[in-house]
Nucleic acid binder design. Structure first.
Length: 500
RNA sequence: GGGCGCGUAGCUCAGUGGUAGAGCAUCUGCCUUUUAAGCAGAGGGUCGGUGGUUCGAGACCACCCGCGCUCACCA
């Protein structure tokens, strides 16, 4: 929408006229500051009948009820809404200015707290100051309370496209949205606090990387002009964080954006937030306990409970969480051992499951898909799936006693993976071999296979201590804790196609 | 990328080939404890875009744009 008053609709034109009229009356329309000393919800909670407490509040006008020489309005601040009451005989010129104000305008108000006849705690205004004139009409909803005392919202702003494109409007008119993002912030704060308390160091590693690695994904490519080289936006932090373990830090973590150049849907955004943690002298057994502690800590600290509802599932994070073997779980469902079976047996199984056997699908990919089809949907309560096939995990350490698998686990909740962890591969000879296998896959057409990172190999040849590593997808964790089914509802500005 | 669905006033939505509608929002008048305030009146549209069919298209057809769901891919 344009802010040129000559080319816009009646509602907007009207507001430009009001702006002009206010200026002509000498009313400041874009103020410099306002001393706030109280917030809506606090005022309501601390209300005492006898004291006519004076307060200064500021916020956006969300509703106006004019009754001639007196008016009511609702003001919304960061904590909620509160009603204000204005009388012409008390505020004179300011009442005339108020007539030129609209829903959406931001005002500062001074007055005393009282309760109306109908029992609503309100502010009786002694002074009203316009802080910012709003020139575009908000898609404001009306709220009412029905006979059962439930809140009813009329004409709620629900257009997903507009909500995502104009998140600022979504945040103004849909209070639940604001709540989700406050929770997201608290979840990350609680996580960071716990990691810091354990003595792990928060670090920053390159987003622009000459080689990408640490995950199986297609990267975004960009170009550095003065070096005249292509660089990749990182798909994971892993290989840099492990270099820091070589460097001798006693545990490092990073909370940051990763970028993967793949399809978008309700669980994938091209940029997303990941927490990765590496702790020396530990293994995946230790890390499982750590994850359990970390998640339950966040749940109880932010939400005060270990019980959640996600979509139609009741989730309970109470320890201990179930542990199942990746290979045995598939065998239980299908009777086939994906490590020892022949390629033909596996293809037969995949076909029976309706898995597309197209193009360059290697054994590793098929195993992964068979798992997704047969086991994953049943993992509702928090479950560690342990000991993954070696083929699926080129950066994880071989299992100390089992053939063909690595010491790796993923944690599933509500049928979704929320984290991935392993005993890190610190044998440089084996690591080189694994990279070389990836190169073969890449040559066979697997676009997501790893590149050989010679500098990483050099680093671990100096010697990397045994290390446990962990990655948690923050967006998906937030989805789970806030019961959102689309990643776009936990990312403030999700990726969209450009507006027409 | 494939399949299905959607796009009409600022918002939420009706409108199945014959004069573009409702509620809220907006504007005018009345109204000094209202609360989806009320009463009386008024204004507001490139029906996502471009072509086509038809005497006549918001509606039917084709293509395009955007969004949602879903499948494929992935975390």
């Amino acid at each position: 929408m344009d802010t040129n008053p000559n080319e816009v609709n009646e509602l907007i034109k009207r507001r430009f006229e009001e702006l002009k009229e206010l200026n002509e009356k000498g009313v400041e329309t874009y103020a410099y500051s306002f001393d706030v000393d109280s917030y809506s919800e606090d005022i309501k909670q601390n209300y005492k009948e006898e004291e006519k407490r004076n307060v200064k509040i500021a916020g956006r006008i969300m509703a106006i009820r004019r009754m001639g020489k007196a008016s009511f309005a609702h003001i919304m601040d960061d904590k909620g809404r509160i009603q204000i009451y204005l009388r012409k005989d008390e505020i004179g010129d300011q009442y005339a200015a108020f007539k030129l104000m609209d829903i959406g305008d931001i005002v500062g108000v001074e007055g005393y707290v009282f309760k109306t006849k109908t029992g609503e705690i309100s502010v009786h205004v002694s002074s009203l100051k316009l802080l910012s004139k709003s020139l575009l009409p908000l898609p404001i909803a009306k709220e009412a309370t029905d006979e059962q005392g439930n809140k009813v919202i009329y004409d709620q702003f629900v257009d997903k496209e507009l909500r995502y494109r104009q998140r600022y409007v979504d945040l103004i008119v849909n209070p639940d949205v604001k709540e989700i993002f406050k929770k997201r912030s608290r979840i990350i704060t609680a996580m960071r606090k716990y990691l810091d308390e354990q003595g792990y160091l928060e670090v920053e590693t390159p987003i622009l990387q000459p080689l990408y690695g640490g995950a199986a994904a297609r990267p975004f490519i960009t170009h550095h002009n003065s070096l005249d080289i292509d660089l990749y936006l990182r798909i994971a932090d892993e290989l840099y964080l492990k270099r820091l373990i070589v460097g001798g830090f006693n545990g490092v973590y990073e909370i940051s954006k990763d970028f993967r150049n793949e399809g978008m849907d309700r669980s994938h955004n091209p940029e997303f937030t990941m927490m990765e943690l590496y702790v020396p002298y530990k293994d995946y057994e230790w890390m499982m306990n750590f994850v359990e502690l970390l998640i339950t800590k966040i749940a109880s600290e932010v939400f005060g409970t270990l019980e959640f509802v996600y979509e139609s599932s009741q989730i309970n994070f109470k320890s201990p969480w179930k542990r199942i073997s990746f290979v045995e779980a598939i065998e239980d469902k299908t009777g086939i051992n994906v490590i020892t079976c022949s390629d033909d047996e596996m293809k037969g199984l995949a076909k029976n499951l309706g898995i597309d056997l197209g193009a360059a699908k290697g054994r590793a990919k098929l195993i992964d898909e068979i798992f997704s089809e047969t086991v994953e949907p049943g993992l509702i309560q928090p479950t560690f799936v342990i000991d993954y096939p070696l083929l699926l995990s080129p950066l994880a350490k071989r299992h100390r006693s089992k053939e063909g698998v690595v010491e790796r686990f993923e944690t599933y909740v509500a049928g979704r993976e929320i984290c991935n962890a392993f005993s890190e591969l610190n044998d440089p000879v084996d690591q080189r071999k694994r990279f070389e296998e990836q190169v073969k896959l890449k040559e066979a057409g697997d676009e997501e296979a790893h590149q050989v990172d010679e500098d990483f190999l050099r680093a671990i040849q100096y010697g990397m201590p045994p290390t446990a590593g962990l990655g948690i997808g923050i967006d998906r964790l937030v989805m789970l804790f806030t019961n959102q089914s689309s990643i776009r509802d936990v990312i403030l500005f999700p990726q969209m196609k450009p507006e027409a």
